[in-house]
Computed example of a mutant assay.
Amino acid sequence: MLTETTEAAYKRHKGIGPQVRQAYDKAIGQIFAELSSSDLEEFKVLYEKHENSDLDTETIINSTRSLMTKVVLEMNQCFFEGNDVENKLATLEMLKELFARYEGKDWNVNAAAPEELTRPLRMRSLDFSIHFMERQLEAQEKELEIAMAKSNANRERLKNVQDERVKLHVKIEEQLSLYREINQEINKEKL
């Protein structure tokens, strides 16, 4: 039933597009109607002074008026055809007719529940909280990357120190065993 009403309203308003287009064309025709040769008097004086000839301002104004009107009319035609204005105007008028019963209604905002009234604020607050937490997580991830890099560098340094200790320990053991051998030989000679 609503579809039939909608289609009927659309068909009723289908003719509004050409009417609006005619009104625009008429208004465009009047835009440059006020141009006159007196608008170019200052240019005419300068031209006559520098060129030593007469400037036909009436012809210039007429050609300018017709050219500008033609250009604006073509732009208007392209706008109407490229944007499907006639159908959109018919749709707009149909919607205005269908929802006319709501025009001027006093929507009682105070009758809404507090949860409904504050929902946009709460949602915005949650959005800000999420955004803040995301930024904190990004900062913590960067700090974690830096800490991990430092930790890996320290582990590498500690491993190098440990390797050096093992090497030194081996050298000390070798030296000790050499000293023991020398000590044993000295003790044998004394006997």
Rank of each mutant, 00 (worst) to 15 (best):
141 E>N: 06
16 I>E: 12
98 L>T: 05
110 N>F: 02
63 S>W: 03
81 E>H: 06
145 E>M: 10
165 R>V: 01
119 R>Q: 07
76 N>W: 02
91 T>N: 09
42 E>T: 08
106 D>T: 03
175 Q>F: 10
148 M>P: 02
93 E>G: 00
184 Q>D: 09
84 D>Q: 04
185 E>D: 08
116 E>M: 06
20 V>F: 13
96 K>V: 04
7 E>L: 13
4 E>Y: 10
175 Q>H: 11
96 K>W: 06
75 M>P: 00
170 V>I: 14
98 L>E: 10
130 I>T: 07
43 F>T: 11
101 R>E: 12
114 P>Q: 01
167 K>C: 00
31 I>V: 03
82 G>A: 04
127 D>Y: 11
60 I>E: 03
75 M>Q: 09
51 E>A: 03
39 D>T: 04
149 A>I: 07
171 K>D: 11
163 D>C: 10
121 L>A: 08
64 T>C: 15
171 K>Y: 04
56 D>K: 02
119 R>N: 00
159 K>P: 00
62 N>Q: 15
56 D>W: 02
141 E>P: 01
50 H>N: 09
50 H>R: 12
117 L>G: 05
31 I>P: 01
139 A>K: 04
73 L>V: 05
92 L>R: 07
95 L>V: 04
134 E>Y: 10
109 V>M: 06
41 E>D: 14
163 D>E: 12
79 F>E: 11
109 V>L: 15
180 R>N: 06
169 H>W: 02
136 Q>V: 10
132 F>Y: 13
